[in-house]
Amino acid sequence: MKVIFYTKEVCSLCDDAKALLLMLEREYPFELEERDIYTNDEWLEKYQLLIPFVKINDVTLDCEQVNIDSLEQALKQNV
C-alpha cells in the first residue's frame, strides 16, 4: 500500500502528521511517499491551504481531517 503525503518544510502540523503515520506504519505496513508542495506548481496550487494532506488510495484527508483515528481508519480500509 502506498501513502502519499503532501507537505512542506517548516510545518509543525506536517511534522505531527508524519509522526502519526510513522507510528501507524508498524501496524499497517505501507510505503510513504512525501511530496513537498514547493517542488511542483500544481501541488502548490492544489494543496497550499490543505497541508498536511494525505492520500491513501481513494481516501484523502486534509489538514482538518488528519488525526490518529482518521489515519488508522483509512489505513484499515485499504489493507
Rank of each mutant, 00 (worst) to 15 (best):
M1N: 09
V3R: 01
I4R: 06
Y6R: 03
E9P: 14
E9I: 12
C11H: 11
C11K: 08
L13A: 11
C14E: 13
D16G: 05
A17I: 01
K18I: 02
K18L: 15
K18N: 07
L20Y: 12
M23E: 15
R26C: 04
Y28H: 15
Y28G: 07
P29K: 03
E31T: 01
L32T: 00
L32W: 07
L32K: 00
E33S: 04
R35S: 00
I37H: 06
I37G: 08
Y38E: 10
Y38F: 14
T39Y: 14
D41F: 02
D41P: 10
W43P: 05
E45R: 00
E45K: 01
K46M: 13
Y47Q: 04
Q48N: 14
Q48M: 12
L49V: 07
I51G: 10
I51W: 00
I51T: 03
I51F: 04
F53T: 01
F53I: 06
V54D: 01
V54R: 03
V54Q: 01
V54G: 09
K55V: 12
I56V: 05
D58K: 02
V59M: 10
L61G: 05
D62L: 00
D62V: 02
E64P: 04
E64M: 13
E64H: 11
D69C: 06
S70Y: 05
L71N: 03
E72K: 15
Q73E: 13
A74N: 14
L75A: 04
V79P: 08
